[in-house]
Amino acid sequence: MEPNLDELIICRRCETLQKRVELPKKKVAKCIECNEVLYRNIEDSFNKGLAFSITSLILFIIANSFPIITVLITGQINALTIPSMIYSLYNEDFFVVGSIVLVVLVIAPLSVMLSYIIVGVFIKLKIFKSLTRHLIAFLVISKSWEMIDIFTVSILVALVKLFGYAEIHFGLSAVALVLFVIVDIFVLKNIKPVELWTYYSREYCG
């Protein structure tokens, strides 16, 4: 007998085939082999994700508009923002480094947040089914190129290097950046593609 394919799931970490079960609320399903979280049943998980992606978009804009740190060296003040950093890389003719930094720090996170928001609106209105499909695929791919969290750790490392030579002040964006990373780790990086697609097929087909 042919089992229904929708009732099966393959673990993304260890590739073990297992049967999906109906979950009670607030429970997660874990892989029997490697304990990876397969899918969750959180109330309104899609709406929460949507709310958080709007939050993170606002935080991201703030984090990019004001200095993250200001550095005082030999009487001169320099402010660090992500755009100014990328601009100075281009200015020094480091096009490759500049472009890759631009992709992982600006384009990829923006793609994740914007596609989530647009997908959310489209699914709610039940329009543009095939465009939504492409956007979700785009979101899943962009997710693995986003490195803001690593960048934040790098700021700390850079501060240690600057410590003896310069006076350092944290700017407004430092707070926004840290908040962004928290939302990013707990919500955006935690998006389970399988949940998105379940929601997608339920809303458009069922």
Binding site: Q76, N78, I86, V97, I100, I150, I155, A158
Partner: peptide, 22 residues
């Protein structure tokens, strides 16, 4: 992706330290 730390550190330093003498 954590290998990118060094590149980010260099970019940050290059972005911040460009005063007249240093």
């Amino acid at each position: 992706p954590w290998s990118m730390v060094d590149v980010f550190v260099v970019s940050i330093l290059a972005g911040v330290v460009h005063v007249g003498s240093v």
